[in-house]
Design a protein around this nucleic acid. Structure first.
Lengths: 141, 141
DNA sequence: CTACAAGCTACAGTAGGTAGAGGTTCAAGC
DNA sequence: GCTTGAACCTCTACCTACTGTAGCTTGTAG
């Protein structure tokens, strides 16, 4: 039986995070010693490792909860798991696209900045130049 | 003079968000009507548009606070602004790299998933397969 | 048997907002 | 001038996914 600190080290999780996962029902309440300290078994280790791995892949805790539910009912179709993973992939790709647009804009901004004082600074100027944004909202709404 | 709702529409911001920005000191306290409603001028509109634009570029509110401080002291060097923008670019690029790794992993996972039932599901299997992760933490710590 | 590391609970705080309750004010139409 | 209702007000709580702290208790190595 493992103490919470051991479990934390083995999975690269903070102790508080493990207690948090228990609190929100992602991890089952473990057994306790007479003194009230949590003791974990290998099933808990597996489950926590699964959660951490999925978190590293960017799944939300809600998605992970779904995956765990599916995983607990092995007779159901793999397609449901597939849907969740596909959704996650879509989200990741959307985020990448957005960040790439930001990168382009930031680079453009920096390329144009070569003045000496702030009153001439292109970076601030670009950030301040909201002509297009205003137009967007005014026509949009 | 603009009411808060008008300012919100013109900048694509929620009313609550404007009040939140005021609360944390990003926007100055505006004038009020006799009845206590906020009234804004063009300077406020510009400042808020600047904030929103910078947010769209992924700057944190703290970074924006710095940029606004620099912008309020036009005699200081553009280099400081440049540093903040470069830092932001680095962060964006790091996030892109991380997300691209996730995308690769998710795609690989999905490509291998063609079984019928969950007990054979590759997605769950991959998430469950923490051998490498455990090794990492065990050797690392 | 004694230190003290590690555990415990409970609460507060983080970023960046968003939502709702319950009450007041502004402005347009009659 | 009066009414109506949309928009405003404050205050509080909530969201995600944790992290940190205070003050106390337990487990274990020497």
């Amino acid at each position: 039986m493992l103490a919470i600190g051991t479990l934390a080290k083995r999975t690269g999780t903070k102790v508080q995070t493990i207690r948090y996962y228990e609190q929100i029902g992602l991890l089952p309440e473990p057994g306790r010693t007479e003194g009230g300290q949590r003791r974990y078994g290998n099933a808990d280790l597996d489950r926590l490792a699964f959660i951490r791995h999925a978190r590293q892949l960017g799944f939300t805790l809600e998605a992970i909860r779904e995956l765990l539910n599916l995983s607990d009912n092995p007779s159901r179709s793999c397609a449901e798991v597939d849907v969740i993973a596909h959704r996650q992939l879509k989200e990741v790709e959307a985020r990448i696209a957005r960040l790439e647009a930001l990168r382009t804009e930031l680079k453009r901004m920096l390329r144009e900045c070569s003045r000496e004082t702030i009153s001439d600074c292109r970076v601030l100027e670009v950030l301040r130049d909201h002509g297009a944004c205003l137009a967007d909202h005014q026509t949009g709404a």
